[in-house]
Amino acid sequence: MADSDEVARPQVSNRDLAEVHDQLVAWLAGRLPDGADPQISELSIPATNGMSSETLLFDASWTEDGAERTERCVVRMRPAAEAKPVFPTYDLDKQYRVMTLVGERCGIPVPKLLWNEPGEEALGAPFFVMRRADGAAPPDVMPYTIDSWLLKADAAEQRRLQEASVAIVADIHQIETTPDEIAFLQLEQPGDTPMRRHLNDLKAFYEWGMEGHPVPLLDRGFAWLEENFPEDTGDDVISWGDARIGNILYVDFTPTAVLDWEMAAVGPRELDLAWMVFIHDFFQDIATRYGGLPGIPNLLRREDVYGQYASLTGHTPKNTQYFEVYAAIRHGVVMARIAHRQAFFGERVMPENLDETVLHRTLIEAMLAGTYWDDLPAADAGTAEAPEAAE
């Protein structure tokens, strides 16, 4: 197996949860009608997914119109600056707005939003509260390719989950909006297209996150992305940003909630599609390379994801190699930043070779060498084609 500090769940908060509990009770009392007398359970942190925004779980009860009301709640809040956050900015209001928009415009199961608090007075940071949905996500730690309910499922169940997940991405991308309605999702970096702004935003994140200690492999990756930037990145849509099965809750392999919208932006369709494919490759590589295990090799294969998407939307994904490299570099920046957080919390020692902060470095090296796709079907080499008939 890989070193434990590479695959163990990093610490995500240094807040006093008892203090946050009392602050939440006081805040709820101010939001609810007089006499509501809100009570909440002890706060807990999700154990297997999510390492950027702080996520807390609790049950709340109060009196409303003479009746007792209860809610199973999730609070998402901006991490404290002194906790060395993963990302440089956390726009919780943007997340709340995009979840509202998506929930109103298409049928995917976005969690019910309960309250939005853009100020910092209550908890010291902006936050919002949503209803906790039933279901479970395939875990990140340990990866679902090593041990999980999804690994133990049969092929038909895995296929059902995959197809429902790809359909979610397709539904998001087919939401019709005006430029004004999604202006808040446009990234603020310079660039003449959303994809150029996306790349410049990723570069800015990298420069901030490495704190003056660049990762040579990622530098090479950014050079490749510039040299191979596509002439045509297609039409732009609402990009979920963190489109992966680990951000979806399922009951009986059917999605019940689509989570984690902090990376949402305007951009090409392939941003989400390649991210979904690559993140599974990443977890599959952990299982096979580091664990000597079979993983789930038939899940989220390129030809299946890209082909189903084309069948659902009429859009044939293109430049898929480029967007998969982009996903790998993007994930590499996140992993390297998480390594800085782990060192800050005393969970690891930073290596002399900073390439070692990127767990999937061998995958990136193969991509940059052009050998990563050697064993893939010809249709995957640059443009995926829709299947002749749906299975």
Results as ranks from 00 to 15, higher is better:
Tyr90Gly: 00
Glu117Met: 07
Phe128Lys: 08
Pro190Lys: 09
Asp235Lys: 10
Val7Glu: 02
Asp147Leu: 02
Lys152Gly: 05
Asp59Trp: 02
Arg105Cys: 12
Pro351Asp: 11
Gln23Phe: 02
Phe282Ile: 07
His315Gly: 06
His340Glu: 15
Ala133Pro: 08
Leu376Thr: 03
Thr254Glu: 14
Pro194Tyr: 01
Val277Ser: 07
Asp134Met: 13
Lys94Arg: 14
Gln162Pro: 02
Thr177Val: 10
Val169Gln: 10
Trp240Pro: 08
Gly191Cys: 08
Glu391Lys: 06
Ala167Trp: 00
Ala265Asn: 11
Ala264Glu: 03
Ile364Ala: 12
Val237Gln: 00
Asp219His: 08
Gly103Met: 05
Ala67Leu: 12
Lys152Ile: 01
Thr254Phe: 01
Glu270Lys: 05
Glu64Trp: 09
Met99Asn: 04
Val25Asp: 09
Pro33Ser: 08
Leu249Gly: 02
Cys73Trp: 09
Lys94Leu: 13
Asp304Gln: 12
Glu176Gln: 14
Phe253Ile: 02
Glu104Asp: 15
Ala339Pro: 01
Pro387Phe: 03
Ser165Ala: 14
Glu6Cys: 10
Val74Ala: 14
Gly346Thr: 11
Met142Ser: 11
Met263Thr: 08
Gly295Cys: 06
Thr177Ala: 13
Val333Asp: 03
Leu363Cys: 07
Arg302Tyr: 03
Glu157Asp: 14
Asp201Ile: 01
Cys73Asn: 13
Leu368Phe: 08
Gln11Ser: 12
